[in-house]
Design a protein around this nucleic acid. Structure first.
Length: 261
DNA sequence: ATGGTAGTATGACTA
């Protein structure tokens, strides 16, 4: 079974690319982030025509997460217990979606950006991750075959950004964010992709501006974290940076894991 | 040089 995650930055503007990528990548399950759509706007028919079942959680034109699967999809659950709210009035945003696909409990996450070190959105980000950690701990303790995958908006290690000097005092690399990410690992989850993609300069995201992709100025912020039961089945992993190339690309590349049966 | 580009309910905000 092949399982992947991809921040597509709008499913409506990216649907041709997503369709083409699903056809050539041969993935069975894809967790999508930033659909930027409501259910009414989501192109369910296009993905269903390729043989995938689709679960989507989108409230408006911001955020939005989905899971598409051709190995079955059940127990679909939007968000997670005690997820904090954001905005005025405060709303629990569409940033997480869980479903069971082919015997694996998959959670698609779009972690809040944080914006700046001293920004209310950073407080929201850290609280969101603290609550996610609680769920992660329950999942590990229950012995589940589960993965939390998506855009974490955190570069956990210095080598996960093209320049620490550039990111000094910016979000994504701060001690607080890294501690929050480490919290998920401390709960027992494992980064199952890094061991297979350890080459220096391996990133999953490149800013649209300043020719960042061409200059190889990226960040590794998209991760597939699995429970020990999930990690034990991982046979390989890859980051499809080819998908970042050309006109109409998302600013994120898909991340893929191969699971043994 | 708070620029650049891409997305959206687009002349305003998010990433």
């Amino acid at each position: 079974m092949r399982i992947a995650t991809w921040n597509v930055n709008s499913i409506r503007s990216r649907i041709d690319r997503v369709e083409a990528w699903l056809e050539r990548s041969d993935v069975d399950v894809l967790a999508i982030q930033e659909t930027k759509a409501t259910d009414a706007q989501f192109p369910f028919d296009r993905l269903q025509a390729l043989g995938y079942e689709v679960a989507h959680h989108g409230l408006n034109h911001w955020n939005g997460v989905a899971i598409v699967s051709r190995v079955g999809i059940s127990d679909v659950t939007p968000s997670f217990p005690d997820a904090p709210a954001w905005g005025d009035p405060p709303v629990v945003e569409a940033r997480a979606l869980t479903a069971t696909c082919g015997g694996v409990k998959v959670t698609s996450v779009y972690v809040p950006n944080g914006r700046q070190i001293k920004d209310p959105h950073m407080v929201y980000k850290l609280e969101w991750l603290a609550q996610l950690r609680r769920q992660a701990q329950l999942s590990v303790d229950a012995g589940e075959t589960a993965a939390i995958m998506g855009d974490w908006n955190i570069a956990p290690q210095d080598e996960d950004v093209w320049s620490m000097e550039y990111y000094l005092d910016k979000s994504h690399v701060s001690p607080g964010e890294r501690a929050a990410f480490q919290g998920i690992l401390d709960a027992g989850f494992v980064d199952v992709v890094r061991p297979h993609t350890s080459e220096p300069g391996t990133f999953t995201y490149w800013d649209y501006t300043r020719l960042a992709f061409q200059k190889r100025r990226g960040m590794r912020i998209d991760f597939i974290l699995g429970t020990p039961a999930f990690a034990a089945r991982v046979a390989g992993a890859a980051i499809d940076r080819e998908e970042r190339k050309g006109k109409g690309a998302s600013d994120h590349a898909p991340v893929v894991v191969q699971l043994e049966d």
